[in-house]
């Protein structure tokens, strides 16, 4: 079994948004801190660091995961997608466009995690009901919007999906 001494730093290599990244992490370094402060990918935000608010959600190997509940050393070699990778080729994704159109964000702090969750949700549930959208969103806390705009935005995009 791999034994990791306190204070020891490890080289972690990951693919983030299709590009290789590497940095150092202690065994206890949260993935959220690794992404932000080691890889300087500040688009992922930290809202509670105890797995409730969902702001820090990133996609790891195809699944939406709270990055505050993962250690960086657990994702060595993984494919990670963060909010910075959603606008491909510089154009907003249909979901990002819908968020803008529907005023689904105000301060925008929780938005990164919600976009990551909703993107994966629509991949697995292309035709959700409003109740299903709200249920998915229950894994996220937004204090500004009352959720109304994002529910409409997600339903807009679901309606456009063939």
């Amino acid at each position: 079994m791999l034994r990791i001494a306190p204070g020891t730093r490890h080289r972690i290599s990951v693919t983030v948004n299709g590009r290789p990244h590497a940095g150092f992490a202690e065994a206890r370094t949260l993935l959220s801190d690794f992404l932000r402060h080691e890889l300087k990918l500040f688009g992922t935000h930290v809202g509670c660091e105890h797995g409730v608010c969902g702001a820090c959600t990133v996609n790891i190997d195809g699944r939406a995961v709270r990055s505050c509940l993962r250690f960086a050393v657990q994702v060595d070699g993984a494919e990670i997608r963060t909010v910075e990778g959603l606008a491909e080729g510089g154009a907003l994704s249909p979901l990002q466009e819908a968020f803008r159109r529907r005023h689904a964000l105000q301060c925008g702090f929780c938005t990164a995690g919600i976009l990551i969750s909703a993107t994966q949700f629509l991949e697995t549930s292309p035709n959700p009901t409003e109740a299903e959208v709200r249920d998915m969103l229950s894994g996220h806390i937004c204090r500004c919007t009352g959720y109304e705009g994002m529910v409409r935005a997600i339903l807009d995009v679901a309606g456009e999906t063939p």
Binding site: F42, V83, E84, L86, F99, T111, A112
Partner: peptide
């Protein structure tokens, strides 16, 4: 404000 917020910038 939205585009920078939506793209993580």
């Amino acid at each position: 404000e939205d585009e920078a917020l939506l793209t993580g910038h």
